[in-house]
Design a protein around this nucleic acid. Sequence first.
DNA 1: CCAGGCGGTGCATTCAATGCACCGTATCGG
DNA 2: CCGATACGGTGCATTGAATGCACCGCCTGG
Lengths: 308, 308
Amino acid sequence: MHRLEAEQVQHLETFRLIEAIARAGSIRKAAEDSNITASALNRRLGRFEHEFGSQIFERLPRGVRLNPAGELVLQHYRAQRSDLARVKSQVADLAGVRRGHVTIACSQALLPFFLPEQIAAYRNVHPGVTFAVNVRDREQAEAELVSFRSDLALVFEPRVLVDFEVLHAIPQPVCALFARDHPLAGRSELRLRDCLDHPHIAPAQKYGVRGLLDMAAKRVGRSVTPVVETESFELIRYYVRQERAVGFQIPIGLSSELDTDMVFRPISDRDMPPGNLLLGQMRGRVLSVATSRFADQVALALVKMSDA
Amino acid sequence: MHRLEAEQVQHLETFRLIEAIARAGSIRKAAEDSNITASALNRRLGRFEHEFGSQIFERLPRGVRLNPAGELVLQHYRAQRSDLARVKSQVADLAGVRRGHVTIACSQALLPFFLPEQIAAYRNVHPGVTFAVNVRDREQAEAELVSFRSDLALVFEPRVLVDFEVLHAIPQPVCALFARDHPLAGRSELRLRDCLDHPHIAPAQKYGVRGLLDMAAKRVGRSVTPVVETESFELIRYYVRQERAVGFQIPIGLSSELDTDMVFRPISDRDMPPGNLLLGQMRGRVLSVATSRFADQVALALVKMSDA
DNA sequence: CCAGGCGGTGCATTCAATGCACCGTATCGG
DNA sequence: CCGATACGGTGCATTGAATGCACCGCCTGG
């Protein structure tokens, strides 16, 4: 999450080591990873547990594992680290430095066009701000927020919304895409049944686009029977140019100007209501200056897009 | 805020010293207070500022003062301390220990009957939980929450509500109180003008009861002209027994059973709408187990009271 | 103008944290 | 059944980061 591991503050060292133990599953492994001896690490843990007032690891025959108290402690540490980063960001901001780091968990649809444009635009104004982009499905994205591994999430049709605070939402109809010379290219209005009657390539169950497709198909007594099912929307984009198949994606992941040899059309909203693309953060969290400004910019861009 | 100063965790030591410096206004004074030498403290501060990346104190000829960055750092520290206390409380809770500490900032009206009853009832079930009660006017109470000096606030008609998250609210009409043999004691309905026509003792401007009185008086072209103005509602309760004056208080601060030689009646809501007694916490904060359970109990008691 | 209080610094000291070696134990593979 | 292995935990010598002490230069208030 952070640019340089070494920049970590010293007073959180113990917590970082605890996190290393939890990750490694054993004190010895974690000690190796952290370039200290197992003895030193063992004692650090012992001291911490003593002053904290209770054990935070179960001792197993083959190692250690976090107990419920340890989970709480680790969550506390992550919140603390995140809040310290926020303070640093605000301090840098009031010194006029405009530094910072933004971590985003997002759906694949944002990768080809939207996010690169947005990040480049932001960095053009604030070159001191760095970014990390994690591609995650909608469930993973929320987990990323809760564990402070990501500051923002930009996902399509997230399922659970506990701890997900929506900063902005825009509707996105599911689109069918196909080669320029596909029979469907001539249709004025695109119905779901037309797509299902042709060979089609669809994303895996865990994605929002597929969820909407399945639900809509069920409503008209059909089902989605893809000739290719994939986790990669990039594969979908390229596959429709090979076989004359129908693919699916939301508009923000498509560009009529840059993908000239294929076309896309929204599926009629008589068959499928549009889904929602949501920009969100962890509920109640205070974002760093850089992050919240970037979120503002993204929200603005989403508004402009849905106006156009 | 905490029971024993010594229980503080070691990794927040530097922050605590920084807080001591900010409080003392000079490194040397803070060093004395903390029982270390000024040299050691100076070096600790220097190290922290170095690794933090910027100064957090202005150096003045006669001492030091927090700069804006320092304010942020201190706020961060207080949030961390509070969150760590929450974690400890939750850990104790899942170990079945039922320990904890609850800090409340409240209006004077809660002192004579309501809070003692509530705290005693809670401690009867959970003897391991300790309490701290800070009497504060409505503005101070919110400041207490923001700086993490209090976990809960129970105040009448708080003015500003930024950062004040309302957990529960019940309406409380302003009541007039007077000696049992006062001329007004016979009235079936009590009008504001009746009270103002008699000598009256009123709380100071900063209190919600007075605010409502002033507003209501203004509406009927009158003004509140107390023969005694005070910051103490306790004085009001006792004064109405001496001179045959009219006092004011909300019902939760009065008891017809325990104060037998005086009576109180709500002022007609044709003259004055009831104000609100609010139970609240700092917006977005996660309370400790003990605190949130106590808040639940208080909310329940408030509901019962307004039903009765 | 000087006495006192301030932040800052060089130097010797100390003690908490570390590394090393080793113990007892549980697991796994042959 | 029994070594080989990996684990957490502990006594002991060592080290280096944090401290205390003495002192500097500075500013202010009387």
